[in-house]
Design a protein around this nucleic acid. Structure first.
Lengths: 238, 238
DNA sequence: CGACACCTTGAAGAGGTTCAAGAAATGTGG
DNA sequence: CCACATTTCTTGAACCTCTTCAAGGTGTCG
């Protein structure tokens, strides 16, 4: 961990535009380099944090892919999101000083640990960071509004189409293909996120494949007709 | 509006514990009294803000009841929440300097207008306010996780039971009855929020009434068996 | 009092779930 | 590196919950 520590520098990180405010002065940038205390590796299947754990830091994903999920005593389990490089996790912990969800790595991952105390301190001093933190929190609220719309008003095909378009769009912003992706999660996890059963996910994939909209081989997905997916999402809900 | 302005003082507001950080010094409290620029009245059915409108302030509800909802071009409409006295609205606008949802008053209301610039400024100076703002944002994220769980994994009866318990709990925190409430919204609005059709809401109300769990007369609801409602929410989801 | 919005209830239908079985991929240990 | 166990995925058939459509009832407000 310490051998990594020397390399920790947001100013030279290629994910900077995703994590950090833009247009900072040299001096401010240098300050913010101190935001990241350490990096932490998380092996596939392991938790970065779990519900109930004391909240102490936000995490920026450097590499890897996560899911966040909440579990209730009565055995319900809901995936609340999937996170990829450049995205921030742990926002749920601020309100009560404890995490309320589990963050599980779906592939080997590395995150930047940003102690919350430092974030508070620096964002009082660096105006742009304050704005940035507020925006990150607000963006998550808006994202979840979108999920509520999806869960509340879309049918299975629309949900899966919206999900895939969102995934490729985010992957594309990170330099990946617009039409090809490898799912990091199981059908069951997709189903949990979309409020559907894994069989429905599987069937809907097959259906899209039959129609020539997708090419599906296990977790390898190739989008053959993006416009068709868009049309499905924007279909009149009757 | 100006005749009201003199009365604007968080320090003497009986909703203070709901809106403001606790344990402030006299001096800090005095500062924060300046957070609220004005009050604004909104008549039932009118919007406090609408999607697309430029974001300039957060709003604390003094009196009245609101819904927030998003509408898509393709005619979908999703209620994303119901807000009551002491709750903060407008958080969705921070990320892109524009509101992304509509806030509609479901009864005549009055809100405190807190210009966002002042919030930024004061929260750099008053540590407790900074923390408080972060917590408000984080709380909204956690609330929405709960809605995702509801929409993603509960059936109609469970959703409505959870909804009612949440409503009375919040009303109770404001000094109202634990067992009696008057709904401010239509069946259709409840349905939109819960991802169900208005007929399903109506039927589920009737069903609860038949079972002796509720007494329902239009929008007047009396909860006759809180434990039964809790049991319904916590039922094993098979 | 009439117009309008809101609510209730019934019957038929659709979409998604459940249960079950088998196939494909992945991981593990010899 | 292969055999086996495990996990993940696919597909079919029956079922169930919620939706849709329709009609009538209740309440409210000018």
């Amino acid at each position: 961990m310490n051998s990594n520590a020397v390399k920790v520098a947001c100013s030279s990180c290629n994910l900077r535009e995703l994590c950090m405010p833009i247009g900072l002065s040299e001096a401010d940038m240098e300050r913010l380099d101190k935001l990241v205390a350490t990096r932490r590796r998380v092996r596939r299947g392991n938790a970065l944090f779990v519900a109930g754990e004391r909240f102490s830091a936000l995490y920026a994903i450097r590499t890897g892919f996560f899911k966040t999920c909440i579990a209730t005593e009565d055995g319900r389990d809901q995936v609340t999101g999937f996170q990829m490089a450049g995205e921030i996790m742990g926002l749920d912990g601020i309100v009560s000083d404890a995490h309320t969800c589990n963050a599980i790595a779906l592939e080997d991952a590395e995150v930047c640990v940003m102690p919350y105390g430092r974030i508070e301190e620096f964002s009082r001093e660096v105006h742009a960071l304050q704005k940035h933190i507020h925006k990150i929190l607000s963006r998550e609220i808006v994202r979840e509004h979108g999920v509520m719309l999806l869960l509340g008003s879309m049918r299975a095909e629309e949900r899966l189409a919206a999900f895939l378009l969102n995934l490729v769009q985010r992957l594309h912003a990170r330099g990946f293909s617009q039409s090809e992706l490898v799912l990091r999660m199981t059908r069951e996890e997709i189903g949990s996120y979309l409020g559907l059963k894994l069989e429905t996910i599987s069937r809907t994939f097959s259906h899209f494949a039959e129609q020539g909209i997708l090419h599906v081989r296990q977790r390898h997905i190739r989008i053959r007709d993006t416009e068709a997916l868009r049309a499905i999402v924007n279909a009149q809900p009757r």
